[in-house]
Design a protein around this nucleic acid. Structure first.
Lengths: 135, 135
DNA sequence: GTGGTTGCAAAGGCTTTGCAGGCAC
DNA sequence: GTGCCTGCAAAGCCTTTGCAACCAC
């Protein structure tokens, strides 16, 4: 069975994502890691990220129409995507906040997890004057 | 400016998706439409779907790691994805159900929309014996 | 007749994968 | 030494796009 080996690449990817303030995608992570390990390949970054997500060390964020973005895991952690600047902000929800949602699970269904993307306009963009409607 | 023209292709795609019980992806829609319009191309299906979504006639469902799926629009309509069989069920939520979530929007942020994918195991799969944990 | 729409095929972007060499254990 | 991990490059999948012919209005 596959034991997990500690490599410089794996550690560096983990450090970079943890240190990132925003939620970088694989290409950004690759670029950042390459400043320390110039020969690391994109393929390796994807492989390492997958493994880290699988092991719960990172969270993978699926943004519609864009590349996946990665984040350090924080409990009850969901996301607000700004329709204007594309930025992603964290939303911290309490267990009670989701009660209304879970009440409506079909009878017999088992709850495992919840991916929520709230689409809106973040505060900075709202105050910059009225963001145009994308269209 | 682009007026929308009524074509056989557009009408057929709309009819097929509306009639579908599940939430088909572009390839499935293409296959189904082709039974009536044998020469329609996948590119056209994508173009028509985009336009229909843009105009609010259909909803596009972004499923992590899979092709996008399409659905007729229903108010307060969210989705439960079964981790075992991959099926998608509709979740009907009342406005009050989301209150807990919206309360935590950052100050000044403007709410526009919410995409929620609840991951779990649907009732049929739960009763088929215990679905293995996808490792 | 005009211009949005289609079919076809090629290209695009993100992600995965095969392989041989390398490195952690 | 063993076998997981890496770098490289090619391939995969979903989706978009360029172009000329076509059809709704």
């Amino acid at each position: 069975m596959a034991t997990t080996r500690h490599t410089r690449q794996r550690q560096m990817v983990l450090d970079i994502v943890r240190a990132a303030q925003d939620h970088p995608d694989a290409t950004r992570i690759h670029d950042d890691v390459r400043r320390h390990l110039p020969h690391i390949s994109l393929g390796t970054v994807y492989r390492v990220l997958d493994r880290l997500v699988e092991q719960g060390d990172l969270i993978k964020l699926h943004v519609p129409g864009e590349a996946a973005r990665y984040d350090a895991p924080t409990p009850r952690h969901h996301h607000l995507i700004c329709a204007f600047c594309g930025g992603i902000q964290d939303l911290h929800l309490t267990p009670g906040d989701l009660e209304g949602v879970l009440r409506h699970l079909p009878r017999g269904a088992r709850f495992e997890n919840l991916t929520m993307l709230v689409h809106g306009v973040c505060a900075p963009c709202t105050s910059h004057g009225d963001p145009a409607q994308a269209s």
